[in-house]
Design a protein around this nucleic acid. Structure first.
Lengths: 283, 283
DNA sequence: ATCATGTTGGAATTATGTATTCCAATGTCA
DNA sequence: TGACATTGGAATACATAATTCCAACATGAT
């Protein structure tokens, strides 16, 4: 990847070493690099007042394979500079509404990166292992976490996993009664304090049902060997208690688990496509 | 502000609408966009097992002038994403699992930023205006969008808005029958093609019920004055049809709308806190 | 089933664009 | 001034892209 670092700066640097006609070509490129990408070698030749073959010779001289290569290189270079500018500057303009958008963006991005950093790769491996091993899965999440839990459940179902999820905790507890050590209970909660989840965990412990937890950073660590925890971070500083960042962080984990799980078996993408095709018939 | 977006996300978005051969081409492009930039149309044709002319037709179909244009566009796009990835690059180590995490992170971050860029601040203002003005709101989203829709609904409900949302489209249509011009129908869908939503929109048009749409970049623009559209971008390149990026983009919009809506009235945060306090009693 | 109609995709052709060759003009130095 | 190198263009050869036209297939109505 060390070939041509920056064609444009290279051109302007070596400008003085070029012959008369080559300068004209170089000048034309420097003047409007973006324009070149839509030209033919003939167009450019005409614009520079040189012959078409001179254009080709010029391309070779600066180390490119030919004229199309010049166009492609320039296009990439323009995109790189532009995007660098954007990322540091103007995704957003500077009216008040845009400031809010900016804050939300930052809050989500940091929830994502912080959460992914917080759990090691091994943690994720172990969690995926547990999902794979489980014969049946109950996913339990209340409040804001209910949506994350049903999203996760529907994704796993698409992959052919036997998953139970829903909003009624009582139903879940009833289902749990038929579960055993070969199954898995997934508990999603930021605070780790919801009553339903505590009851379910208690029951699971008594009956040796493995637990995969998804909690916030402050929930107490559980030393029980039959339990495994992934953690997420989220600072809710835009609208208190809105759970926007929390949900972003939780989805980062469940989505990653889903992707890793899907990639473990080669035919998984096909299964999703099948499921998608069935849905498409409804259109 | 609705300028043509990312080619790669556009391809993965419209993937399901393509014919068999077109999919093979699209797949080849998505698999190795960088590779395309050094190929001829013949090479690519051979690699896809289709004719050279099909490649050209494909390029035209996706709105490009021809094959060289495809190469140039891809090259620019790769450069853009690469430079974006470099900036966020150091979060992760470099084992394969971490590479997956990195990709997911990049995909989510770009879904966020692209989506926020795609809609102007005015667009968001208008949308919030419509939410504020509405006496009652029905939020309709099927499939993957159902979760976004119920999330949005529950948030707005917390703020005291009269919102109806749920998974049963028939129930929604029945409810819609009692709606009028002072109410609002929110339709969430990436493809814009779901049958239930089309029926609901049709009915709303006939009865002058305002519509707020949340669609993907390819859905057809609706000129009906009683309708307003926000768009989201998402390239689903990790696990096809998994809707991970799509949902990230949709939530970016609904979350932002929620925040803006909440900030319009000073006592809104208090209302959320109230609602939270009630929930806390369950613990 | 059958026919009309539309859509998709490929073979062959044409058009366009790129690269090479070869030669003339110009410049450089003994 | 003459040998030699360098530059650049005209003509040409080559490669690639785009179009046309037709066959196969799908779709939908009768």
């Amino acid at each position: 990847m060390h070939s041509v670092q920056n064609l444009i700066s290279k051109l302007s640097a070596s400008f003085d070493d070029l012959s008369h006609n080559e300068r004209r070509i170089a000048q034309e490129i420097l003047d409007d690099p973006a324009g070149i990408t839509t030209m033919t070698s003939q167009n450019l030749a005409q614009q520079c007042g040189v012959s078409q073959s001179s254009i080709i010779k010029f391309c070779k001289k600066i180390g490119l394979s030919g004229f199309p290569a010049l166009k492609i290189t320039l296009s990439a270079e323009i995109a790189r500079t532009q995007s660098a500018e954007q990322i540091h500057g103007d995704i957003f303009s500077n009216d008040p509404l845009s400031a809010v958008a900016q804050k939300m963006y930052n809050s989500k991005v940091s929830a994502l990166s912080e959460t992914l950093k917080l759990n090691s790769t091994d943690d994720f491996s172990i969690a995926v292992e547990k999902l794979t091993a489980a014969k049946r899965i109950i996913i339990l999440g209340v409040g804001g976490s209910a949506l994350v839990s049903s999203d996760f459940a529907s994704k796993l179902t698409k992959l052919g996993k036997a998953v139970i999820s829903g909003s009624d905790a009582h139903v879940h507890l009833a289902n749990l009664a038929r579960f055993g050590p070969e199954d898995l209970l997934v508990l999603i909660s930021y605070s780790g304090k919801s009553k339903e989840l505590l009851v379910a965990a208690e029951y699971a412990h008594q009956h040796n049902i493995p637990i995969l937890r998804l909690t916030g950073p402050n929930a107490i660590d559980n030393t029980n060997s039959n339990e495994f925890t992934l953690r997420c971070v989220a600072s809710e500083n835009l609208v208190r208690s809105s759970s926007i960042a929390t949900r972003t962080a939780q989805l980062a984990i469940t989505d990653l688990l889903f992707i890793l799980f899907a990639q473990k078996e080669a035919d998984m993408p096909a299964k999703i496509q099948d499921s998608q095709n069935v849905v498409n018939r409804l259109r």
